[in-house]
């Protein structure tokens, strides 16, 4: 029923070479995002959410190496493109919003110029009309008094404003795919709500596919169509947001939900997830990287993980799902 997805990541594996050995950061990661769809990648720190995004964007650290997989985007494999072609795609067709807007913006360049830079480099604007277009973008992300704010440096703006500038830069050339890496971490809840509404609205208008990386399950559920749960470099479950909340099938997803503070739970009812992530440098990592922490472990769990379909677009990688 669905057409060709905007982005299809297949069998992506990434390793990092470190002094203390090779770390298998991602293993056989596969998911897709349709046009106009918002997909959340959630998981604890160290689960590989950001590495997945960096690999797709081609901005992995020098120590990181893609060992297998494809990321099909607009008919081309992003992982196979050379740096020059990738640079043409980035900014125009794919763009990213980073976690900390203050460190991601250039501190000694006026924000209006930073937006204009993208428009000139990727949007086909000339140096003369770029400033006007930049102000248009500032209006679009609802910055009050855009003419004056275009002349400001990042340190003169609040965190929420800086994040809006980042969004303006990311969306200036109407990309087909936006990756937002924890765009609201460190912002106030009221600002977070405004920023998330804004991303949602602009994405909806342009039919943009969005990958939203977060550790906040409630936030993911409110703003995303589907949720992909990651644990220690594996995708353990992918499901429509509502369904995941109502019926999590992977034991890890269920534990994560139980640990998320919400409206109806009390502190006594909440449970932590015992154990921690396995050491990914090990050469004898179990097939299921959650099995060391899992209460539902069976003998089969040492076998390669199955991908079980539990419903429409609901896949779980578990031998003994809930």
């Amino acid at each position: 029923m669905s057409a060709v997805p905007a982005l299809a990541v297949e069998d992506l594996s990434v390793e990092f070479r470190t002094r203390s050995g090779v770390v298998k950061v991602l293993e056989h990661v596969g998911f897709s995002v349709d046009k106009g769809e918002t997909v959340a990648l959630v998981g604890e720190s160290g689960s590989g959410k950001s590495v997945t995004a960096f690999a797709v964007m081609g901005i992995l650290d020098a120590a990181g190496k893609v060992t297998s997989g494809r990321a099909m985007f607009g008919g081309a494999d992003l992982l196979a493109l050379n740096e020059h072609d990738l640079a043409e795609q980035r900014g125009r067709e794919l763009s990213m919003i980073f976690q900390n807007p203050r460190t991601a913006l250039n501190p000694i360049r006026r924000v209006g110029r930073q937006i204009a830079d993208v428009l000139v480099r990727h949007g086909g604007a000339t140096r003369n009309d770029a400033p006007r277009a930049a102000i248009e973008m500032l209006k679009k992300v609802r910055i009050p008094d855009p003419e004056r704010r275009a002349e400001a440096y990042p340190f003169e703006l609040s965190g929420g404003m800086c994040q809006r500038i980042m969004i303006a830069i990311a969306l200036a050339c109407r990309p087909a795919l936006l990756i937002a890496d924890e765009p609201t971490t460190g912002l106030d809840v009221t600002t977070q709500a405004v920023i998330m509404d804004l991303i949602g609205e602009l994405a909806g208008e342009a039919g943009m596919a969005t990958i939203f990386i977060t550790h906040d399950l409630a936030l993911a559920a409110e703003y995303c169509d589907r949720i992909v749960v990651m644990h220690a470099g594996h995708i353990v479950e992918a499901a429509p947001a509502r369904e995941l909340f109502a019926h999590p099938r992977h034991p890890y997803s269920a534990k994560l939900l139980a640990a998320t503070p919400g409206e109806t739970v009390s502190l006594a009812d909440m449970a932590s997830i015992p154990g921690g992530l396995p050491d990914l440098r090990r050469t004898d990592l179990p097939a299921c990287r959650y099995s060391g922490r899992c209460e539902r472990r069976l003998d089969e769990c040492t076998q390669p993980l199955p991908q079980r379909t539990m419903g429409e677009r609901h896949v779980v990688a578990c031998w003994n799902p809930l």
Binding site: R142, P144, S158, M161, V189, T190, Q192, A193, V194, D197, D216, L217, A218, L219, A221, E222, Y223, A241, R242, F245, G262, E263
Partner: peptide, 24 residues
């Protein structure tokens, strides 16, 4: 009200009224 309305919620339809603050 705005603060509480901004708490992310897994089931947005349960939210009573949606309040967003404009301006600075």
């Amino acid at each position: 009200k705005a603060l509480i309305s901004a708490i992310p919620q897994a089931e947005p339809e349960q939210r009573v009224g949606r309040l967003r603050l404009g301006g600075e």
